[in-house]
C-alpha cells in the first residue's frame, strides 16, 4: 500500500508575465515505510511539489488538476482546517534552511512544546518529550538546550532541532526538503544517518528532496527525477543509478560532485538553462539542452515503462 500517491498533479503560479506552470502532470507514489527521493536542479519545482502536498502554496499559486492521495483522502479537496489537522501529526516537514527555520525570539523549548498543542499532555510532559527527542537526535545537554534561543546553536545543531521537532510528531510521512544543502559534507553524512535511524525507529515513509545525486543514492529506495516541473524518470534507486534511461538523469549522474571527488577542477554542469515555464515547449522539455536531440523531440515524448522503470524520452526504448 502507498502512504502517498500523487496523480497528474499540475500547479501554476500567476505572475506579472502570465501563468507559470511549475508542475505538469506529476505522478509518483511513496510506498509505506519507504524512502523516495526527488531529484532535480534548482528551480525544477521540488519545493512547489512539497508546498502543494502541505496545502501551503503561495497566494498566487493554484492546483490546476490532479490528486494528492494520502491515507485514502485527496488532500486537494480538503479545507484549510482539515489540512491543518494533517500537517504536523500525520505529515511533518524538515525544511532546507536551518538558520531561518526556527523562530528567533522564542526559546527552543517553547517552540517544541507549542507544536504539541494537540497532544493534551501537561506542560511538564510536553517539555519532557521535547528533551527526550533532543536526546535522540544527540543534542548535548537536551534540558539546557530547551531554554536556549535558536541563535545560540550552530547550523548543524539547528537542523537537529528541526529534525527532532518533525520526528516528535511521529508522523506517517516525513518530508525533508533539501535538509542538508546548507551543511558541510561531514554534517551532511551525520544528518542523513540520523534521518535513516529515526525513520527506522518511527516506521514512517519519507519523501526526501535534493539536488544532490550522491545523497539520494545513499538514502533512497526509489527515485523520481524531475525536470522543469515534470517527472522525466522514475524507478528504484538501483535502476535509476545503474541504468539511467533519460539523458537528463545521465547528465545529472555525470555531474555529481561525489563521483568526481578530487579529480575535477571545475564541476561539469549541464549547459543551458531550464526553459521558461511561462511558455513550455510543446515537445520534450529537455530537448533544448539535450545532446541526443532529434527531430522527433519536438513532439511530446511518451512514458516508456519497463519493469516499473519509467522514462519520458523518445529514445528510452533504446536503453
Amino acid at each position: 500500500m502507498s502512504e502517498l500517491e500523487i496523480l497528474d498533479l499540475s500547479v501554476s503560479f500567476a505572475t506579472g508575465g502570465g501563468d507559470l506552470q511549475a508542475l505538469n502532470k506529476v505522478t509518483f507514489k511513496v510506498p509505506e515505510h519507504r524512502i523516495v527521493g526527488i531529484v532535480g536542479e534548482s528551480g525544477c519545482g521540488k519545493s512547489t511539489l512539497i508546498d502543494a502536498i502541505l496545502g501551503l502554496l503561495a497566494d498566487n499559486g493554484r492546483i490546476d488538476g490532479g490528486e494528492i492521495l494520502f491515507e485514502g483522502r485527496d488532500l486537494t479537496k480538503l479545507g484549510a482546517k482539515e489540512l491543518r489537522e494533517i500537517r504536523g501529526p500525520r505529515i511533518s516537514t524538515v525544511f532546507q534552511d536551518p538558520m531561518g527555520a526556527l523562530n528567533p525570539v522564542f526559546r527552543v523549548g517553547r517552540q517544541m512544546t507549542n507544536i504539541q498543542y494537540r497532544s493534551g499532555l501537561s506542560k511538564r510532559e510536553k517539555a519532557r518529550r521535547a528533551a527526550e527527542m533532543l536526546r535522540r537526535v544527540r543534542m548535548p545537554d537536551p534540558e539546557a538546550a530547551l531554554s536556549r534561543y535558536p541563535h545560540e546553536f550552530s547550523g548543524g545543531m539547528k537542523q537537529r532541532i528541526a529534525i527532532a521537532m518533525a520526528m516528535m510528531m511521529e508522523p506517517a510521512l516525513l518530508i525533508a526538503d533539501e535538509p542538508t544543502t546548507a551543511l558541510d559534507a561531514t554534517l551532511e553524512a551525520a544528518t542523513i544517518d540520523l534521518l535513516l535511524e529515526l525513520q527506522n525507529q518511527i516506521g514512517c515513509s519519507m519523501l526526501y528532496v535534493s539536488h544532490h545525486m550522491g545523497v539520494i543514492a545513499e538514502l533512497c529506495d526509489e527515485v523520481v527525477v524531475m525536470y522543469a516541473g515534470e517527472v522525466v524518470e522514475r524507478g528504484t534507486t538501483r535502476q535509476v543509478f545503474l541504468k539511467p534511461r533519460h539523458p537528463y538523469t545521465q547528465r545529472l549522474i555525470e555531474c555529481d560532485p561525489a563521483r568526481l571527488a578530487g579529480r575535477a577542477e571545475k564541476l561539469p554542469t549541464i549547459p543551458g538553462d531550464i526553459p521558461d515555464l511561462r511558455a513550455r515547449p510543446s515537445g520534450c522539455v529537455f530537448a533544448a539542452r539535450c545532446s541526443l536531440r532529434e527531430e522527433v523531440c519536438g513532439e511530446p515524448p511518451p512514458e516508456n515503462v519497463r519493469e516499473g522503470h519509467m522514462a519520458r524520452c523518445h529514445r528510452a526504448a533504446e536503453n
Partner: peptide, 16 residues
C-alpha cells in the same frame, strides 16, 4: 520568514 512556514507546516493555528 521561513520560520513562519515551519510553524504552518506543524499546523499551528493561524491566530497564534
Amino acid at each position: 520568514a521561513s520560520h513562519i512556514r515551519t510553524a504552518r507546516a506543524f499546523g499551528l493555528p493561524d491566530r497564534q
